[in-house]
Each structure stands twice: as C-alpha cells, then as structure tokens.
Amino acid sequence: MKCPEQLIDYMHEYLDDEITEEHEKILREHLQSCTDCQEYFRELNKAIALVQSTSHIHAPDDFTSKVMAGLPKEKKRTGVQRWFRSHPLLTAASLFLALMAGSILTTWNEDHQFSVSKQPNLIVENDTVIVPEGEVVKGDVVVRNGKVKIEGEVQGNVTVINGEKYMASAGNVTGEITEVNEVFEWIWYHIKKTVKNTANLFDHDEKEQSFQ
C-alpha cells in the first residue's frame, strides 16, 4: 500500500467517533479512489462487527447464592447488636419468652393464691389489702389475686395483678398505678421490665467488649 500512513490513523479516529471534519473529508475522498484502503477499512469494521456479534451470555443461576455463601461471616457482635438496635422490643420479648416465660407462666398457674408485698403498715383483711387512712406506705405495693383499698398514701407504684383497686378520695399514690388482669398483660408487663434490663445489659456488654 502506497497510501499516506495517517489514513489508518484517521480510520481509527473515525471508529472512536473522534474524527475532525477535516480528517473525515480527507478519508472519504481517499476511500472513493483507493480500493486497498476500502478493503482495509472494511476489514476493520468487520472485525468489530464480529466481536460485537458474540451473543450476550448470562451468569449461572446459582451465581448470587454462591457469592453470598463465599462472603466472610458477619462478626457475631455486629450482627447481634444491629438486630438488637433495630428491634429492641422484639429482642426483649424473645429473650423473655425463651428464658423466663416458662418459669413465670408456671408461677402464674400455680400461684393463684393471694400475695402482697411486705410493708409493715399495710392491713390485710382476707383478700383485701388496705392502705389505712393517715398512713404513709413507702415503696412499691404489689397485690396478686386480691383487692387493694387505698385510703392513705403510697410513696411508690401500685401494681394489682388479677385483682381490683379501690381508691378513696383521700387516697394518694405518688408513682404509677398498674392493673394487670390477663395473662398476656402479665407477660407484657414483664417484657417491658425486661426491655429496660436488656438495654442495660447490652450497653454494659458493649463497653466491656470494646476493650478487647
């Protein structure tokens, strides 16, 4: 081929979509008169077309599952912590159910008798607990399977489980009054308690682990 060498450069510029108008004009004019260069240009285009004609192939069906199986295992701590952070209540609930439900439900079933927290100035008549008028009861009062009559003052929370509560007009409770009448409410009451405890437990855990 006795053609100027730049012509091949122009062909590549053309194929890269980067040819100037001037070069394109020179290339076109030359191709009209030179069969060698025509053939050369045809061969280049043919090679590209053949490479582009190779059919698109797909990854095997189990590709993604194989990749996922090959990933390094998540660090346990990160996994547990993330799960705990995004589902604090569920975490507590499942911990509670797994570890404690058995024993508490047993208590629930067996312990259908009357019980009350021990404070010296509480009066107990049959299944009724009385906070006497003019008396101040310090600390939380918990009554199970019985009634509570509040005529005096309770400096703390009052919890009535499967029972009833009578509040006299003079009665006063500084904390929260909670009535639990169903077994599920009873469980729920414990779950909420467990949430607070697990939250503390996990915070504590994390601090300890960060020193490792």
């Binding site: 698109h56 192939i57 797909h58 990854a59 990749v67 996922m68 998540e74 990160t78 996994g79 993330r82």
Partner: peptide, 24 residues
C-alpha cells in the same frame, strides 16, 4: 453498615456483566 443481605441485590444487578467480562 454491616447488612450483608443488601449485597445480594448488588450481585444480582451486576452478575451478568461481570460474568461476561470474565468469560470474554
């Protein structure tokens, strides 16, 4: 953030292109 499962979706998006690149 540590969510390994989210990576599965990324693999799904690019698996054919990467496989094809490697095959060719």
């Amino acid at each position: 953030k540590g969510d390994q499962n989210a990576y599965g979706e990324i693999v799904e998006v690019y698996k054919d292109k990467v496989f094809q690149l490697c095959y060719r």
